[in-house]
Design a protein around this nucleic acid. Structure first.
Ligand SMILES: [Mn+2]
Ligand SMILES: [Mn+2]
Ligand SMILES: [Zn+2]
Ligand SMILES: [Zn+2]
Lengths: 142, 142
DNA sequence: TAATACATTATATTAATTCTAAACTGTTGA
DNA sequence: TCAACAGTTTAGAATTAATATAATGTATTA
């Protein structure tokens, strides 16, 4: 609860009322040591485990969408049937481990600037994301 | 119907029985001048329009999955609520037009090799895909 | 052509997400 | 301070992509 005030400020500045549900979700998402990736289902589970309050599924969806709109969360394009979200909102890329269904960050510095030698008339590039799918390296089978 | 024989061969070689539904779907997907991207919903609509036969939704799903397994189609990772498929199965990248919800191919030659300076122990990279989101360029507002 | 394995279909089911509308709460200004 | 209001939460319903089911139909093979 130590960081609650900071989240109250953050929410107020965004024009979002600091309700106890939103503060709790902030704690779960932004208190963490490291940024992380999550699905809605996973987020609900984390809240259930570490929260003293109950937050409805609808509120979790509402809040995640509100935070995305404010730029506090990013949605990660994956061909899954569910959305993945990222608390790391800096520009970066991803490995996607197809066996464990887990995203792993690749810092921008670890990928040479992606140079696209093609343009679409009347359009500009808003973002460029690289997704590298990875699987177990079983070349060790001599 | 001219290419039907070719598809019959293709299907037979894949161990798929050449049914009239599958041949029709082949025609829709592979007769086209150019490769293209589609959702299941769109594919169903195309079939409805140009086919003399009815193909059930279940068969469309089954067939698309069978073709993916055989490498005749690729699934494109997008943060949409539905899957996009690609009849271009060569290695290439995409623009995604967020305003028109359309994918545009970027040939491999038009993107410098993506060099990822990071590895995950025990894992190897299976594929690397770039998605560049594009929006209208309204800088012309002087 | 009969037997069989494979395929199609209508329909039911699942599951992520969104919607609804009633109850609740944070904010504001008198 | 507190009533009024706008914004928020909630349970549950609705929506929708995708998958499963199981009965019927068809391509293949001998
Ligand atoms: Mn969304
Ligand atoms: Mn699929
Ligand atoms: Zn990330
Ligand atoms: Zn493509």
């Amino acid at each position: 609860m130590a960081y609650a005030d900071q989240y109250i400020d953050k929410l107020r500045k965004s024009g979002l009322r600091p309700t106890k549900q939103r503060i709790k979700i902030c704690e779960v998402l932004f208190d963490a040591e490291k940024t992380f990736h999550f699905t809605i289902k996973e987020l609900v589970k984390i809240i259930e485990n570490q929260a003293n309050i109950k937050v409805s599924l609808a509120t979790v969806y509402n809040t995640v969408h509100a935070f995305m709109k404010k730029g506090y969360l990013k949605e990660i394009p994956l061909n899954a049937s569910q959305s993945y979200y990222d608390t790391n909102v800096t520009h970066h890329h991803h490995f996607f481990d197809e066996e464990e269904n887990k995203l792993i960050d690749i810092h921008q510095d670890d990928v040479d600037e992606v140079n696209i030698k093609r343009t679409i008339p009347g359009k500009k590039i808003k973002s460029v994301e690289v997704i590298a799918k990875i699987v177990s390296d079983n070349q060790s089978q001599k």
